[in-house]
Simulated scan of single mutants.
Amino acid sequence: MVVPHHPAGARLARRRLAEELTDVVPPPLLADLVAVLAELVGNAVRHADPLPGGVVRVAWRLRAALGGQQVQLRVTDGGAAAGPTMRVADTDAADGRGLHIVSGLADRWGVERDGLGQSVWAEFDPAEITRSDLAVAG
């Protein structure tokens, strides 16, 4: 999907993701997916240029895997002079924790650059989902 390169874009992406995956993935995973997508779109809006047309492209892909669904989120923007990096935020800082949240919730994340911009992706493995669900239930 395409959302505006604007803070409202994160809200639209979260809503659409939740609508499409509510009956597909367990609720704890959906909460993590929504949080990570919000961080990735928010970072694209704050730190990167838009794609042509003033937009950010958002995508998710599910793959059947042993133990459940593997999910990949991907946010593509026009890129920035410096790529995404984890920052050290003071306890009083209002921002600077986004990629720490992504890293803490996703099994893997990374950045891919091409001639059009950059994509930041995050992957969630079903084995982790199963352990999380058991921990919450127990």
Rank of each mutant, 00 (worst) to 15 (best):
G96D: 05
G83Q: 11
G67A: 10
G9I: 07
D95C: 02
A80I: 06
R61W: 04
A18Y: 12
T76R: 15
R61E: 13
A82P: 03
E123N: 01
G53A: 03
L33C: 14
I101F: 13
G117H: 15
P7W: 10
Q69I: 01
L116W: 12
V56L: 01
A135C: 02
N43D: 10
G79C: 02
V71K: 07
L37I: 08
W121V: 02
P84W: 15
A18F: 05
A44D: 07
A135Q: 13
A48I: 00
D23N: 02
E19N: 09
V24T: 11
A89W: 11
G79F: 07
R74D: 15
V41H: 10
L29A: 12
R74A: 15
G67N: 10
A127T: 06
R15A: 12
S132H: 06
D114G: 00
V75W: 13
H100D: 09
P126C: 06
W60M: 01
S103K: 12
S103I: 00
G138R: 01
D114P: 04
G54H: 08
V45R: 11
R14F: 10
H100W: 04
A35P: 01
E128H: 09
P28F: 05
E39G: 05
A89R: 06
P27W: 06
V136C: 03
V111R: 14
R46Y: 02
D49A: 11
G9L: 04
Q69P: 11
P7S: 05
A18C: 09
E19H: 07
A13S: 07
R74Q: 12
S132T: 09
L134V: 07
D107L: 03
V120W: 10
T76E: 12
S103D: 14
I101M: 09
V120K: 01
A94Q: 04
L66D: 14
V102A: 05
H6I: 09
A31C: 14
Q69L: 09
T91N: 02
A38K: 01
G115R: 14
W60A: 05
Q69D: 15
V102S: 02
M86D: 10
A137G: 11
V34Y: 14
M1N: 06
D92H: 04
A135N: 10
D49C: 00
V75E: 08
N43L: 13
L37K: 12
A137W: 12
P26V: 06
A64Y: 02
V71R: 03
G9H: 13
P26M: 06
A35K: 01
G54S: 03
D95K: 00
G98L: 00
G68N: 13
G9M: 05
P4T: 05
V45F: 02
V41Q: 11
V88G: 04
G104K: 07
H6M: 07
P84L: 13
E128N: 08
A10D: 09
A122P: 00
R113I: 04
A48E: 15
N43W: 13
L12K: 11
L29S: 11
N43T: 13
P4Y: 07
V2L: 15
A65S: 15
E123D: 14
M86H: 06
E39V: 05
G104E: 05
V120L: 12
D107P: 07
E112Y: 03
H6K: 06
V71Y: 08
D77N: 14
V88L: 15
V55K: 03
V111L: 12
G104D: 06
T130E: 15
S119N: 07
H100L: 10
Q118P: 00
E128I: 00
M86K: 15
